[in-house]
Amino acid sequence: MIRMRSFSSAAWIILLVVLGLLFFWNVIFRLCVAIAKRSGHYLPCPVGFVWLTDNPLRRLWMRSVLAWIGLRLGELVLELGAGAGVFTVEAAHRVGPDGKVIALDLQPGMTVRVKTRVREAGLTNVEVLTADAANLPIRDGAIDRAFLVATLSEIPDQHRALTELRRVLKTGGVLSVTEEFLDPDYPLRSKTRARVEATGFILQQSFGNFWVYTLNFGNVRRQQ
């Protein structure tokens, strides 16, 4: 009985800690993000909080999201907003040795983590770049598929970033945008669709639910 009570107490403590962290992440930090945006400041996930996005809970739906994104063998893929590389390694496995993933993030602290993760996985088909979404260091029409996970709403000039994505994507290439409710910047599906289609992309597929969804857009019309 003593052991059972001890285990029960420990379980409750862990549960309360987890709930407390979720409360902070979804309420307090969400409020801070909203206030910052009103002041014209957009906040990417701080490097010090990376453990909140790189955890077993998030990995529960990672494979489903990657399946929705639809990565194919041999593709040249751009992961915009790679963060700590939670999706990078699995994405690299899915495109295979004849494909390549360009993992790009604005924060040097994040790209260092991605490089470490890629090196530990023994991958040779990943290129890690530190760059701004508004000025992608990639040639026109080079990318088969680009994907963003909980990233688009963190970008200050989203129209400029989406225009850049149209530039680097091939004609007929795919832009995949995934949003997660646990992200403080989470937008509704309808808002994401309107935002992306305003730059000329065409919605082709929609997956998921309120908590996690993925929208795949076609780069149907090339800019002149």
Rank of each mutant, 00 (worst) to 15 (best):
I102Y: 00
P187C: 03
P46L: 01
V149T: 06
L22R: 09
L52F: 11
M62D: 09
N26Q: 13
L78Q: 04
S8I: 15
T53C: 10
I69M: 06
Y213W: 11
T88I: 02
T163L: 04
T53F: 12
I102W: 01
E197Q: 13
V95E: 04
L165H: 00
L136M: 07
T178Y: 09
S190M: 11
L203Q: 10
W68G: 02
A131C: 09
R222W: 01
L43N: 12
V114Y: 08
A134W: 00
C32V: 13
R139L: 14
G200C: 08
L22F: 14
E180Q: 14
L136C: 06
R160D: 03
L21N: 07
P156W: 05
A121C: 10
Y213H: 08
C32S: 10
R72G: 01
L136P: 00
M1D: 14
S190W: 13
F29D: 02
V101H: 07
P46T: 02
N135K: 12
V177M: 06
A133E: 02
L203V: 09
V220P: 09
L22D: 02
A92D: 00
S6D: 12
N209S: 15
S176N: 06
L106R: 04
N135F: 08
W61G: 07
A92P: 10
V47H: 11
W12G: 10
L22N: 07
R145Q: 06
P108R: 08
P137K: 13
R5W: 12
L162E: 02
S153H: 13
R113M: 15
F217C: 02
R59K: 12
L78W: 04
D98H: 14
F24V: 09
Y42S: 08
P156N: 05
V33Y: 00
G172P: 10
A161D: 08
G74F: 05
V50P: 00
G141R: 11
T199Q: 11
Q204I: 10
V27P: 03
G85R: 01
Y42I: 09
N55L: 07
V65L: 01
R167I: 06
T192L: 11
N125M: 11
E75R: 07
I13V: 08
L148N: 01
A36S: 12
A146K: 00
V168D: 09
F7P: 00
T192D: 08
H93T: 07
E197H: 02
N216K: 10
C32A: 13
L169Y: 10
A150G: 02
R5M: 07
E197I: 01
W211M: 15
I14M: 14
G96K: 04
G122I: 09
T111C: 09
Q204S: 14
P56S: 04
P44R: 00
R195Y: 08
G208I: 03
K115E: 13
L104T: 08
A142F: 09
L19F: 07
L16V: 06
F23R: 03
D140M: 01
M110A: 11
C32R: 15
V196S: 04
P108G: 01
